[in-house]
Design a protein around this nucleic acid. Sequence first.
DNA 1: TCCGTATATTACCCATGGGTAATAAATAGT
DNA 2: ACTATTTATTACCCATGGGTAATATACGGA
Lengths: 253, 253
Amino acid sequence: MDASSPFSNQDSPWLPFESRRRARDEKREAVLRTAVALFLEQGYHRATLNEVAKRLNITKPALYNYFRGKDEILFECWAIGNELVDECIAETSAGGGTGLDKLRKLTVRYAELMTADYGKSLVRFDLRDLSDDNRKIVRNAKRRIDRAFRDYIAQGIADGSIKPCDPKLSAFAIAGSLNWIGHWFQPGGAMSGRAVAEEFAIRLTEGIATTSKKKADKPPRTGNASREETREHHTRTAARAAGQSKRARGRLR
Amino acid sequence: MDASSPFSNQDSPWLPFESRRRARDEKREAVLRTAVALFLEQGYHRATLNEVAKRLNITKPALYNYFRGKDEILFECWAIGNELVDECIAETSAGGGTGLDKLRKLTVRYAELMTADYGKSLVRFDLRDLSDDNRKIVRNAKRRIDRAFRDYIAQGIADGSIKPCDPKLSAFAIAGSLNWIGHWFQPGGAMSGRAVAEEFAIRLTEGIATTSKKKADKPPRTGNASREETREHHTRTAARAAGQSKRARGRLR
DNA sequence: TCCGTATATTACCCATGGGTAATAAATAGT
DNA sequence: ACTATTTATTACCCATGGGTAATATACGGA
């Protein structure tokens, strides 16, 4: 009725009777795009590799040219999301400002990530579906993200931009609220991902900020923490090749 | 042993039947306690009914004396958690106070629920594992919970205890943060569930409250929103019998 | 004591879906 | 064009685990 039609899936490099000569990495990424969408849509266990393949106009065994197995696909989806978060943290840390400034900056970007597929995969996939090695990698990455939030809060307390509080619990509270976005946000809604992100950034930090800015009431200052680039989900492929962890590049023969 | 029968005498031919039924319900609940723990520990799909049975020193088919199938067990676990939340909401709504008072009261109780198994089941189980009918029930219940948060916020804005804000987004932010507790809290940690709950209640409401109470700094006023009873996870059995929804009482023969 | 019911067990069925082997088709290099 | 390599397909294996049928056992009631 839908996915099997030759007219849907216009972005599949395997369109029948189409030139099948495309870079291997593009196909890999196409698999991941399809897989992450399906995993989110149906849940990892209900989603089958047959269905992933079907949506790409190929058959299941073809997937094994690019991945060792289902759990590796899951991990790679997660890894892409993780790289996006890492970029957020790196850029936020690189930029200046008070602890509160950084916290807000990270909050906005992280929130917006949670409204997109790869971001959602960070919070909706289950660690226990991964291999032991990959599970360790993910756990460490989660800790790094948590530390970023805590560090910014601690820094804010130190520089006086944030009220004294327990950084650990405050980070949990903020990150929890943001992570939950990945569970309820759906693109078709009334607010865009960007809008939700900016709203949340204000709401979640106003409680602990020392200066109670009324940024929300009118838009005289949109803030400098949200206008820069956020629009390159592509050209990330090269960066991934330098990823920190063992991520097999397809089946090694 | 309880109040299920006024006469513990042999002149009541109902006593044996009653005690039998009670024994049955106790076994039912034992299954649910074991199942919810296992589902949380391993995830619904990895957890097997064989393992549930094994932990109860019985075998898998014995479970089918009490439940129609795995997904019904999942639903019943969820239903118990939902009743606990319903009690929170009912009591909070019954009690007086400003919108902010009620919001805080609900926040404390809800947070503490999230630190226990049945509470966690509300946010960690996947709707899509349920039958269509049960899924509808759960969805409606989730909406009711969301509405409670929104109503209290709206009420608080109306009575001046809460700053003007979007009730919908604020409710999402608060509930999200609370729900996330169900994902990270583990009993063995440094803080008790109660302690986490009270911390969160303060942190999550201080941002939108008009009066910035410093409840956290010293304990001159512990607040009336946290001392009353919260300690009856038992004797809930009878209340469940009057539950709002089709919940089969074991296999009907 | 004997019957009927509730409850448990053993032994099975079988749909599902991840994964693999053998092989065919396309592509690149010479 | 011939060959090696990559990439896809068809046809299959099989472990897993939910669910069921047949049956045994415990127990209350007469």
